[in-house]
Amino acid sequence: MNTKSLEKTPWPTVLSFLLPGFTGFVLFVFLPMLSTFLISFTNYSGGPNWKIVGIDNYLTIAKDKHFLQSMVVTFKFVVIGVSLQIIMGLLFALILNRNFFGQTFFRSLFFMPNVLSSVGISLAFSLIFHPTKGIANQMLEFVGLPDSPWLTDPSTALLTIIMVVLWMSFGYYMIIFLGGLQSINPSLYEAADIDGANGVQKFFRVTLPMLSPTMFFALTMCIINSFKVFDQVFMMTGGTDGGGPAGSTNVVVYDIYQNSFRNFRFGYASAESLILLLIILIITVIQFNNQKKWVTYDI
């Protein structure tokens, strides 16, 4: 009867809707992505004199201790940061999923840091973590613990930045998990009650499996976001030398920025970029392939 719905929309109409946004996407994301690939095989530095150098940049990277260190820093950041953000997010979602007075208030309060300016927040934490007289050290002294050098020592700087990122974003993952918890069918808990399950059993047999699609989403987002952390590193340990004490907070995105816009090694930075992107891509693909094993999409 109405064959019109099966027809394809005429191209001029499609393009009139698509192009306003798609043009920007092609110009400022898609073409640059392809270009990064090409630039990584040159020694381009912004000037007119450049030549194709083949895989030289990649060979340099393979031998570069500085890049290797940057990779290690990034992986430390991702592994520790993601674990803490996901655990904290899940913990607070479970705690706030009970019905109690002030539930909405605390939900909003814990999420609020996520909407604030990371630059402004970084300034505040630079003051709080001031190595000699900051509030963090005053509190440590108050409970009788020794001072910490926080951002000024290679052994603590990265952890301090992870804490700031955690402060800003655990509420985001909490909201995601809360959404997941609230979409679990209550009758599953009733059935578990009838079968005589205790709280722990209900958590592992009902809550966690039913939450697995949300967990998959949160984990994917958290890993990708953690590879992107830049503002806090720039603001709290950027300074003149950059990358923190002894390069201990020099995550790869920060190193790419340094090599692009301070050292003007565009070719080298592009090769770094491509390796980083490849790593993110591989991790994401592995996650998508593995999800069949642990993510439940039933009910």
């Binding site: 400022f28 994301v29 073409l31 640059p32 992505m33 270009s35 990064t36 630039i39 590879f227 992107k228 830049f230 995105v253 790419i256 920025y257 692009s260 565009f266 930075a269 592009s270 970029s273 491509l274 980083l276 992107l277 993110i280």
Partner: peptide, 8 residues
């Protein structure tokens, strides 16, 4: 990450 495409 934006840094990956920022040069082009």
């Amino acid at each position: 990450p934006i840094q990956v495409i920022i040069i082009p």
